[in-house]
Design a binder for these strands. Structure first.
Lengths: 349, 349
DNA sequence: TTGTAAGCGTTATCAA
DNA sequence: TTGATAACGCTTACAA
């Protein structure tokens, strides 16, 4: 391992000078600078990050805790973080809680969850990262604040809700749902069913608000019987689709709060001999990669996942002091495909 | 930040002693040990990893370079690596080359790719990781050895091929394809079409060998007209399915070398009014998460992704010296669902 | 413009 | 069993 010392000796200058050219402090003669640079290249010198970090006590490293990297949307968020870090030469040290593998329903296993988290937090704080991004799984509620807050680190929460006042970046559920509903209405649908997630969950409530807003804006009534609460799984989608469709006045379109439930709607339609979109329109939320392969390809609300990651990293690293107040809600956009039938086109605003 | 020094002073012992209890060297009196441990707890001491690494020149950190973390199978491999690291208290620093985002066809943009890689390698070598796992994307060929080999680090390649002699862990393509074919045969299929990836690619050749082996074992002829080379995309699957099915003696089942092409077969079937599995059986390879939502759910060869990651990490970290010779090929297993019709059951061995 | 030297928080060697 | 003390490779005053 070649060190500053080596290249100082070899160049015939002092170690301080070498350090100065390394850090571009400016106070080095152009000539010496060149010579130093040359021997660096010749000796294939690579600075030792540990030594530097130890001295400066900042690691140029961002910690990211993912509740589960295996979860659908997490990788693209990480990818966004990565892009920022690459642009600003930060490293990422990744902690993967592996929640889904270890605690199947972490609402009920909070203690175990805390153990896992504690271990990771410890590792993390011993590596003295400069900031921390916490990526949840499908916006489940997390109540881990006490642990993380002890760190006295700038922290950014992503893709998760929390009852505490905490900085986060997320996508705008309400806007996304409103957009989906609006799209349906623009395509002539007036009776729109919606398959929600669990009742009284933040995510459900937000999306429901968006749905409602779109209805109101277009002078359409909000009908209780069109609202069904599922568990975000495909079976649940199929079940509730059936219920919705056996109403006296069945909806002509169904909006599901995630794509998986939309797949369930597809399954029910297939089993009931209903054609999509001829007999029933469906629009999803989340735009999973598979949705383009569904038959017919599923129209869905696309999440700004990459952007969420990038925003979180930049907010965290650029205005560390202000991060505490940071609240970012990013807009979704519509991925139009072929699962919505145009009943009677109306003018789009 | 509380240091060894602080807790030494507070306990009234020397700093060396404190270090000894920290590292469990044993040469510390039980009584002093307890006192030290107590003040550690009281002061909430967390060791500084940088200082330790600097001194010991090993970081307890594993570098993982992912060509693209956004690629389907990568996260589950990373998850496997994570499990190992968690069990052995290693940290992971993640480098995401973001290949797919930046160079769309990296076969033709090798130079750009090298730039990206070089930058990452540099960062990586300056953080002095103890080992490196390189995760490819869908086993494309990578010729990056010169760069990485300069590192003089134990390196493990995962999910990628390379012409050089290099340690790797991967899944067994040949075995997987053989198993899929065997399954079809056991279900009474004798005319089996196969949708390959690009011609003369390692992955295609390996799987083709497995297909052929299964045929031979069962005394079935290998027919050239049943072999089609696609580009692993859905459109390609649809196109070749059509060709296969318009043969004078069309296959009763199609084996696709990835699930995406199987989705293409589904699309063609839908457009041609063919029912799966009644009119055509299909079996995929890779078992993407979405395959269980396809209609009907797609039977597919499941990859030991998590295990690949775990194996790579353990091989790398446990027998560093022997790693050079390491070659691991892990078996796939079959995920049976509903896309294969049983024509005439024969005895399964 | 350049050199010297102290110190970041550890580990490790040697004495005591 | 414990205590001093010299590194590890770097940054940063401060002095020359």
């Amino acid at each position: 391992m070649v060190t500053l010392h080596d290249i100082a000796r070899k160049t015939g200058v002092s170690i301080g000078t070498v350090s100065n050219v390394l850090n571009n402090t400016g106070r080095v003669g152009a000539d010496t600078r060149k010579r130093v640079l040359d021997t660096m290249a010749a000796l294939n010198y690579v600075p030792n990050k540990m030594a530097k970090s130890l001295k400066t006590s900042q690691s140029n490293t961002l910690g990211v805790i993912a509740e589960d990297i295996t979860s659908f949307d997490t990788p693209r968020i990480v990818d966004g973080i990565n892009e920022y870090c690459e642009d600003h030469s930060y490293s990422i040290t990744l902690y993967n809680l592996r929640i889904d593998n270890k605690v199947h329903d972490h609402f009920y296993l909070l203690e175990q969850y805390n153990d896992i988290l504690t271990r990771n937090i410890l590792a993390l704080s011993s590596s003295r990262v400069d900031g921390l991004i916490y990526i949840g799984v499908y916006k489940r509620n997390t109540e881990l604040l006490p642990l993380i807050q002890d760190l006295k680190l700038p922290v950014m929460y992503v893709y998760c809700y929390n009852s505490k006042e905490v900085p986060y970046v997320d996508y705008n559920d309400c806007q996304g749902a409103r957009m989906a509903t609006q799209y349906l209405i623009e395509n002539g649908h007036k009776r729109i069913g919606v398959l929600c997630g669990p009742v009284d969950t933040t995510i459900t409530n937000n999306q429901l608000a968006g749905y409602r807003a779109a209805l109101e804006e277009n002078g359409l009534p909000f009908r209780d019987e069109y609202i069904r609460y599922g568990n975000l799984e495909a079976v649940s989608g199929a079940y509730h689709a059936k219920r919705l469709l056996s109403l006296p006045e069945p909806p002509t379109a169904i909006f599901t709060m995630n794509d998986i439930m939309a797949y369930g709607v597809y399954q029910y339609a297939a089993s009931a001999g209903l054609r999509i979109p001829e007999d029933l329109s469906v629009i999803g939320f989340g735009n999973l990669p598979y949705s383009s392969y569904a038959i017919p390809p599923l129209t869905s609300v696309a999440l700004p996942l990459h952007e969420i990651g990038y925003t979180a990293a930049s907010a965290l690293l650029e205005n560390r002091e202000e991060v505490k107040k940071g609240r970012y809600l990013l807009d979704c956009c519509l991925q139009e495909r072929a699962s919505v039938k145009c009943l009677s086109p109306i003018h789009r605003k």
